[in-house]
Amino acid sequence: MFPRPIQSRSSNYQLAYKILVPVALFIWLLPLLAIFMTSLRPAADINTGNMFGWPSEFKLVENYLTVFRESQAVTYFFNSIKVTIPTVMISVSLACMAGYALSIYRFRAALPLFFMFVAGNFVPFQILMVPVRDLAVQTNLYNTVTGLVLFHAAFQTGFCTLFMRNFIKALPFDLIESARIEGVSEYKIFWYVVLPLVRPAIAALSVLVFTFVWNDFFWATVLTNGEATKPITAGIQSLNGQFVSRWHLVSAASLMAAIPPVAMFFAMQKHFIAGLTLGAVK
């Protein structure tokens, strides 16, 4: 292990370390703590300038209720869900198939096509912006949830295919070979042999794509403009304008937006990290 295990050091050193870690964590998460404390405060604290001290009263429930009552936050929240869930399902399914095709079969186009998916995944969004928006307008999908889902699904397919292909490539090829010798059709091999084996990859991709799409802000602003379709990230932005200097409400709304991906992360931590490291760093 590197650095040297702390257990081999003097007990003073160990104690210092055990104190230092929580202190460092506290400083690291200070911005989040501050926003959380602010979401508990009454408006009076904000007005009197008590931004970082102990709240004079706890108004957690009231603040969140005010956000619900005075804004479209609930609509935004459900819009985000309506965009995110179908995107995850489409992009992960497409990637399972594409990843299978690119890893199991040896054909000349396999590597170039794989690199195309990888490269597409890295392009700046702005090079896609004008045509994608125009396409959405032409097909009457501008300012609809469907329009957002189709784009996100297509774009995330690049990343998912990259991950899936590498994952399937690392599976033992003998399994497929012996199924072929048994006379199992290619489609059945995919369904009965490969799919059960890639379940961890599906889990990893689902949590990651969920987080990416949930947190997307750019496409939410480019492809929607109405209250009825706006996802939460774009919604927070307009709430910020609406609740000028009512920081307790902005904080409450921001925390609300952060809850689903955070819950997802803590529930599926192992898969999440496996996904982020692309399986390349094991």
Binding site: L94, A98, L113, V130, P131, F151, A154, T157
Partner: peptide
């Protein structure tokens, strides 16, 4: 197996 992913990716990423 590739067709659906390619179709989506071409329409929304490569072609744009």
């Amino acid at each position: 197996f590739l067709a659906p992913a390619l179709l989506f990716f071409t329409i929304y990423v490569i072609f744009p």
